[in-house]
């Protein structure tokens, strides 16, 4: 019988964009809720944002099955951590754990593109941005996923982060107020969904500050 199926691949790209912005006393993490494969939209309401600890949230795009496996793994590791230390993991610690977890699968990678956001031990906003095999960097804001090529330069233009080469080291957090950061995130997603077919349907925004975690939603283009 002739082979009719296209060559099997263990990977798929389910699209989606993630953004995180850190401020002096807050962190905003956002992602759209569209899940696609090729030109098909599989569902318009799939959350890409996962709460890993009390003050630590991860947004991930890429291959949904790998992302789900990664989230489950981190949740299990965090449960063990809580049993051993009787406290929540800090955001910088979770950032290192995520990097190690991704690198552990360096030769059969999790096809997932993550941004991690939260508050550090001083209550200051922090954002960590990753590639699929675990390289990571602490930044003031970042974008990952299918719309990142449209979003990142816009954020650069609006936020102008201090060069990491400056001495003494400058703080990376953005000067924006919380409400301004949320507005900026809404704007970048409204813009990205105009040109990126994998970004759209709905925007989910998670805000972390001293009061705790808050969630809000905004509609995006559905075409």
């Amino acid at each position: 019988m002739p082979k009719e199926q296209a060559n099997w691949s263990p990977y798929d790209n389910n699209g989606g964009s993630c953004v995180a912005v850190a401020g002096a006393d807050y962190c905003v993490i956002a992602a759209d809720t569209r899940m696609s494969t090729g030109y098909n939209i599989l569902t318009r309401d799939y959350s890409k944002i996962c709460k890993l600890a009390d003050k630590c949230v991860m947004a991930s795009s890429g291959f949904q099955a790998d992302v789900k496996a990664l989230q489950k793994h981190l949740a299990a590791r965090h449960l063990i951590y809580q049993h051993q230390h009787n406290k929540q993991m800090s955001c910088p610690a979770m950032a290192q754990l995520l990097s190690n977890t991704l690198y552990y699968k360096r030769f059969f990678p999790y096809y997932s593109f993550n941004v991690l956001g939260g508050l550090d031990n001083e209550g200051k906003g922090c954002v960590f941005t990753y590639d699929a095999v675990g390289s990571y960097e602490k930044v003031g804001y970042s974008s990952q996923g299918s719309g990142s090529t449209l979003i990142m330069p816009f954020l650069d233009n609006q936020l102008k982060s201090p060069s990491p080469l400056l001495l003494p080291a400058q703080d990376a957090v953005t000067p924006l107020a919380e409400a301004e950061a949320i507005d900026l995130v809404k704007t970048v997603f409204a813009s990205a969904s105009e040109r990126d077919i994998y970004t759209g349907d709905k925007l989910e925004i998670v805000v972390i500050n001293a009061d705790g975690i808050r969630r809000e939603y905004m509609d995006l283009r559905k075409d």
Partner: peptide, 10 residues
């Protein structure tokens, strides 16, 4: 659920 594990509810 798909062949490679992609899954969702709707």
């Amino acid at each position: 659920v798909s062949m490679i594990g992609v899954n969702f509810e709707d």
